[in-house]
């Protein structure tokens, strides 16, 4: 699609990416890919409950498929960047739509999760960066030594620090809020809806989120409780 001047219709029209709807579609697709990563990553990490051999082997396996791993990482990075750029641009637009604010404004129909996307997102991002620095790069590893390749050790040592676990749990809860809205919202943004399916989807989004967040949180809890040592 291009733009043109004709008669009284003359304004430049937004391209797909420039339109709010297009950006939301991009956010939906990138969000869906990131969701797949969240699921896959959980499946891998839960192996920690099966002992050091299993999860370290898994880590080793990931390193043997280096090119594929990097391909996946690049896709994920692109998704994160697009997801964030779109959000930031939309947020900047949305702040401009109401130059004079209301003296009071009540939300009557939206959930907490719906309304907190703008700040659950950035906190999750900060967490992801911290998490990568801790467990992938090993730059931040308080109160213990990061051992490259010994995932099991790194997890146990990392989560034994109470505030690391607390930060992790807090961030995962926010990720939960984020996913609870995002998981059905992405369907809405892509126009995949149905009066019968959408309510089911909303419920499913809640339960899938609970399962995933519970799965992730079980790891630091397992460490702190001494089930994983």
């Amino acid at each position: 699609m291009s733009t043109a001047v004709a008669g009284q219709r003359e304004n430049r029209t937004p391209s797909f990416w420039q339109s709010t709807n297009g950006k939301k579609a991009v956010m939906a697709v990138t969000g869906a890919i990131l969701f797949l990563f969240v699921v896959g990553h959980l499946a891998g990490n839960l192996q920690v409950f099966e002992g050091p051999a299993k999860i370290n082997a898994y880590g080793h396996f990931l390193r043997t498929i280096g090119e594929i791993l990097w391909a996946i990482r690049i896709i994920l990075i692109v998704c994160v960047v697009l997801h964030i750029v779109a959000t930031v641009q939309l947020a900047l637009l949305n702040w401009k739509t109401r130059p004079v604010g209301y003296s009071r404004k009540k939300a009557i129909n939206s959930s907490y999760a719906d309304r907190t996307m703008y700040w659950s997102g950035p906190i999750v991002l900060a967490f992801v960066i911290f998490h990568l620095l801790q467990f992938t790069a090993g730059y931040i590893h308080p109160e213990s030594q990061f051992i490259d390749g010994d995932i099991y050790h790194n997890i146990v040592a990392g989560f034994s620090v109470w505030w690391v676990s607390a930060w992790y749990i807090f961030s995962l809860l926010l990720l939960g809020f984020h996913m609870r809205h995002g998981l059905w919202s992405m369907f809405q943004s892509l126009g995949l809806n149905h009066p019968r399916h959408t309510p089911v989807l909303k419920q499913a989004a809640l339960w899938i989120t609970i399962v995933i967040v519970a799965g992730y949180i079980s790891i630091p809890i397992g460490v702190l409780a001494g089930w994983v040592r």
Partner: peptide, 15 residues
Amino acid sequence: QMNVEGFGSCTNIGE
């Protein structure tokens, strides 16, 4: 047109 008018984006929250 909706975009040119300067309306914001939908975040599917249902207000």
